[in-house]
């Protein structure tokens, strides 16, 4: 899941300062699950914006809406009517959603959250980074624990000398990924694999090769054909 956190309110106030009527748009996907941009957060932020405008003595009308998913143009289309009524939009979706909205409406669209990382939920209210989207998954050789996302130095052949009692040198709150990998290899009885040298990573699939795109020919075919026919 993509995780996000609400932006500091002051930053959002700054964005919307010039406008009198705005729309706060949530997304019912990842940002709802990580409690950053669902219906509830839309309500809370809208309330906060109203209270702020009252305090600042300025006029501000805030509309609220939450879409099923903000990174699909069809869903974003549903905002047409509301977007027509407002001067600006604050989106609480991840960066993908914000950009989709911005692409479809010719009014300013501001981020209400900081998109953080691809993470998993450790327990209620705690999310931790698990994947960096390197495009060439190596979990198969590291016992299901990703050194790219979870080792502070993304070491292919760790752990470094900074591992102290299984914790990373940068903080006691961070597990040493290579300790976890080693434990897992031992658990699986394949610790021999440890000594195989893992070659330096090719970063092209990770974005080193420029912005990435997936084209599924089989799915995209009809679209391409329709376009061609048009």
């Amino acid at each position: 899941m993509i995780t996000a956190e609400q932006k500091p309110l002051q930053e959002i106030f700054g964005y919307i300062a010039p406008y009198e009527k705005i729309l706060v748009v949530g997304c019912n996907e990842c940002v709802t699950v990580c409690a950053a941009g669902g219906r509830k957060e839309v309500g809370l932020l809208s309330s906060a914006l109203r209270l702020h405008s009252v305090k600042a003595g300025k006029k501000l009308e805030v509309l609220e809406h939450t879409l099923e998913r903000q990174c699909d143009p069809e869903y974003v289309d549903q905002l047409k009517e509301l977007a027509g009524q407002v001067d600006a939009i604050v989106s609480l979706a991840c960066g993908c959603g914000i950009q989709t909205v911005a692409a479809q409406y010719a009014i300013p669209v501001f981020p209400g959250v900081n998109t953080k990382f691809m993470g998993a939920s450790e327990s209620q209210g705690i999310w931790a980074e698990r994947c960096m989207g390197c495009g060439d998954c190596m979990l198969g050789v590291t016992g299901g624990i990703c050194p790219v996302a979870r080792c502070s130095k993304s070491l292919m052949n760790g752990p470094c000398g900074g591992n102290s009692s299984g914790k990373c040198e940068i903080s006691e709150d961070v597990d040493c990924a290579w300790q976890l990998i080693w434990n897992r290899l031992v658990e699986l009885g394949i610790q021999d694999r440890y000594e195989e040298l893992v070659a330096a990573k090719d970063w092209r699939p990770a974005g080193g090769g420029g912005p990435r795109k997936i084209i599924r020919e089989d799915l995209a075919a009809s679209k391409i054909i329709t376009e061609d026919m048009a």
């Binding site: 309110l9 209270l51 305090k55």
Partner: peptide, 8 residues
């Protein structure tokens, strides 16, 4: 905390 950010 929200109120604090709002200056309330």
């Amino acid at each position: 905390k929200v109120l604090e950010d709002l200056g309330w």
